[in-house]
């Protein structure tokens, strides 16, 4: 087993770690906050407050 074989295993392991971190945070977030909060984003909210679009 040379360095490249070790790097192959390391890449698999790192990919799995990143995947697990994402999935764990996803499940934690979905169970902590209500759907009402998570999906409350509205397009153009900031514009409605700051951009008047007047010449």
């Amino acid at each position: 087993m040379d360095i490249w074989n070790i790097m192959e295993y390391a890449a698999w392991a790192l990919a799995a770690i990143f995947g697990l971190i994402i999935v764990a945070d996803w499940l934690r977030t979905d169970s902590t906050y209500s759907e009402d909060v998570l999906m409350s984003s509205r397009e153009g909210e900031l514009e409605a407050m700051t951009e008047e679009h007047k010449i």
Partner: peptide, 15 residues
């Protein structure tokens, strides 16, 4: 806070 607005948004993308 960013992404907040008058139509009930409690969380939005960050500017």
């Amino acid at each position: 806070a960013d992404g907040m607005g008058p139509r009930g948004a409690k969380v939005g993308l960050l500017r």
